[in-house]
């Protein structure tokens, strides 16, 4: 009823409809006083934020770049500032030291597989929970728990569950699945396993931290994909069903094209965050057993070794490589991005 009565008013040439769409600045083109006032108020309102961000983010980053080109150690930290001897020695040291390229490689594997896993599980979860059933709301909310829970608590429970002495996973493995020995999931670099007679060395600690990443981040993908699925018009699915398309065909040809832009955005977001991730690996393995990623290495250089210059150089390389990877990705798939 209300829509009917409101209809003619909006459809008619009333001034309200166009006014809502135009930005406030252009409405008062005549009065330069109001525009000046608006400019002043805007700047006044935004300036606290800008000051905080510049002081606590922008300046430190510029300083980090300066530090990367200086030989600074924790011991002589008092005297350091912007002025000092600039040198490329840090980068030379970092790039020639044995661990860095390995850590970079681990970071790449960790973030690529972790991202794929998180989005894959999130997609399966979103599809499985698409049709309503009693209790769906509660299950949906529960699936978000790994994502909202504090990372320290989550890693602590995981490492207790995986503990070789009293963890429930190893108890289950040895008692029910018949493992010969308990597996040290978080401190074994390689686990010899025979698959169909083949002797394979599984990088078990790396696999575990990747699984943790998938477990912790899939709710994020699940949330986004669920929201996108709800926006897919029901008619499309219905029409395909009437035409005799099987569920897998409907997914392949109807749903997937609709979801792809969202998946592309999720890929970028998850990849960036996983690539930069420090907490999970530091808390699970401390970077040991073949799981050292660049950010954990930076932390080690910063605190344990006190080599601030090298730490800054590695962090900078991490950021630059990430920016390049994301840039290449956007260049390749940029068009899909814009649709999302």
């Amino acid at each position: 009823m209300t829509q009917l009565t409101g209809g003619p008013g909006i459809a008619g040439p009333g001034p309200a409809a166009p006014a809502g769409g135009t930005p406030p600045g252009s409405r008062v083109r005549g009065s330069s006083f109001r525009r000046k006032e608006e400019n002043r108020t805007g700047l006044a309102l935004i300036s606290p934020t800008v000051i905080i961000v510049v002081a606590a983010v922008v300046l430190p980053i510029i300083w980090a770049i300066a530090l990367a080109f200086q030989r600074v150690r924790l011991i002589n930290i008092r005297g350091t500032g912007f002025i000092g001897e600039y040198t490329l020695a840090n980068f030379a040291n970092v790039l020639t030291s044995p661990g860095f390229l390995g850590a970079l490689f681990t970071t790449l594997i960790y973030s690529v597989v972790g991202t794929a896993l998180a989005i894959g599980i999130g997609l399966i979860a979103a599809l499985a929970l698409r049709k309503p059933f009693p209790g769906r709301g509660l299950i949906r909310a529960s699936l978000l728990l790994p994502y909202v829970a504090p990372v320290v608590a989550a890693t602590f429970v995981w490492s207790t569950m995986l503990n070789p002495q009293f963890g429930v996973v190893n108890w289950f493995g040895t008692m029910v699945l018949g493992w010969e020995d308990p597996v040290a999931f978080l401190s074994d670099r390689a686990l010899p396993v025979s698959i169909f007679g083949w002797q394979v060395e599984l990088p078990i600690a790396l696999i575990t931290v990747i699984l943790f990443e998938g477990w912790r981040s899939f709710p994020f993908a699940f949330l986004f994909l669920t929201a996108r699925l709800q926006a897919v018009p029901e008619v499309l699915d219905e029409a395909a069903r009437i035409d005799g398309a099987t569920p897998s065909q409907r997914f392949r040809h109807i749903l997937l094209p609709q979801l792809l832009p969202t998946i592309a955005v999720l890929t970028v977001l998850r990849f960036i965050w996983t690539f930069n991730n420090f907490d999970d690996i530091y808390l699970l393995t401390g970077g040991g057993a073949g799981t050292e990623v660049v950010s954990v290495r930076v932390f080690d250089y910063l605190t344990a070794r006190g080599d601030i210059g090298a730490a800054a150089a590695q962090a900078l390389l991490l950021a630059v490589i990430l920016a390049m990877l994301v840039g290449v990705y956007l260049k390749l798939f940029g068009r899909e991005e814009e649709q999302a």
């Binding site: 930290i77 350091t80 950010s295 930076v298 910063l302 601030i308 900078l316 991490l318």
Partner: peptide, 18 residues
Amino acid sequence: YFFPSILLAVPLFVFFTQ
């Protein structure tokens, strides 16, 4: 929002120590 926090951690750590 997308900045690696570990890069930010280096100068902030130095500054807070100083």
